[in-house]
Simulated assay, not measured.
Amino acid sequence: MSDKTLGYVYLALAMLLVGSTVVASKIAAGALPPFTATALRFALALPCFLVLLRVSGTPVPRPGRRDGAILVLQGLAGTAGYTALLMAGLRATSAADAGVILGTLPVVATVVAMALLGERPRPMLLATIALASAGLFVLHRQPAGTAAGSMSGNTLVFGAVLCEACFILLNKRLRVAVPPLALSTLMSAIGLAASLPFALAEAAWTAPVASSALLAVGYYALLPTVGGFLLWYAGTARVGATEAALFTALAPVAALLLAALLLGEPVGWRQLAGIAFVLAAVGALAFANER
């Protein structure tokens, strides 16, 4: 197996793990309050990152006041905010719908950059936005007689996507680049510190918690969070940035398939049409960035 092919394998596995977080979050959200699940995720992931930081000899950054403030905002948005909103949203919507919405992240990040930085959109970027918007529109067309709760749940999941998009944008504003492993360690620490007070207020320990929910949080913390990090950066070290970006399209597909296989959720025309539009948008975005 060539080095580049191995990179493809690493990237594919990383995105499959990312897709599986939707199913894990759905299981955890059924028995745990959102901030409790968030705090547990980072409480488990942080020690692993600290060990990796020590073993690898990665230097711990000492950011200035401006970069320090950006890192805190990143932690609040991209870790605590993202996980808590995703968990809260999955209490009211299906994992299949959430997977499609999470697939819009690359396009949403581009839109946020244009809105906040005043970048002028090129025609191809406008096409990607239209495709992703069409996917969300189709997804939100609820059949008559279905429960109305999924709309609020989908809105919370989209809020999680916005938080992650802000994380990406803020990372580009850092004056001094932070090594990926150090950044993941810092984000886990900030996410834990931000979610812990709310988790204590939720007092989840006063009621019995299903073991499946705890196992789901443990899985989320150790495999997609820590293992996904290692696989993604092992892959990007062997593959170009444009090629790596295309692999993000695997995450919503994995979420959709795993929701059907593991949770028994029905996958209808709305989800299939939505994922088709989202995948087309991701492909068009990668093509636009390559030119």
Rank of each mutant, 00 (worst) to 15 (best):
Gly30Leu: 10
Gly283Arg: 01
Ser56Ile: 02
Ala281Tyr: 02
Arg291Glu: 01
Gly118Val: 13
Thr206Asn: 12
Thr236Met: 13
Gly78Glu: 01
Val209Glu: 13
Leu86Tyr: 07
Arg41Ala: 00
Leu256Cys: 07
Ile275Gly: 03
Leu183Tyr: 10
Ala29Ser: 14
Ala113Pro: 04
Thr236Trp: 03
Ala88Glu: 11
Glu243Trp: 01
Arg41Lys: 09
Ala132Pro: 06
Pro266Phe: 04
Lys4Ala: 10
Val157Met: 09
Ser212Leu: 07
Ala203Thr: 11
Gly240Leu: 00
Leu257Tyr: 04
Ser150Asp: 09
Leu156Asn: 11
Leu6Cys: 07
Leu215Asp: 06
Arg175Glu: 13
Ser94Thr: 13
Met124Cys: 12
Gly99Glu: 03
Gly228Ala: 05
His140Leu: 15
Arg141Leu: 07
Tyr8Ala: 10
Val239Ile: 14
Ser195Gly: 12
Asp3Trp: 14
Ala95Asn: 06
Trp269Asn: 09
Leu13Arg: 01
Gln74Val: 08
Glu119Gln: 08
Val226Ser: 01
Ile275Ser: 01
Ala273Lys: 07
Ala249His: 05
Val72Thr: 03
Lys26Tyr: 12
Leu174Gln: 13
Phe277Val: 04
Val23Cys: 11
Gly81Asn: 00
Gly118Asp: 11
Glu290Gln: 15
Ala244Gly: 09
Ser2Arg: 02
Val267Leu: 03
Cys48Ile: 00
Ala165Val: 05
Arg41Glu: 07
Arg120Phe: 11
Trp232Glu: 05
Leu85Asn: 02
Ala260Met: 10
Ser20Lys: 02
Thr128Glu: 02
Val226Ala: 05
Tyr233Val: 14
Met151Asp: 13
Gly75Arg: 00
Leu71Thr: 06
Ala199Cys: 09
Arg66Ser: 06
Ile27Pro: 05
Arg291Ile: 06
Pro59Val: 02
Arg122Asn: 10
Thr248Phe: 06
Pro180Leu: 11
Ala177Ile: 03
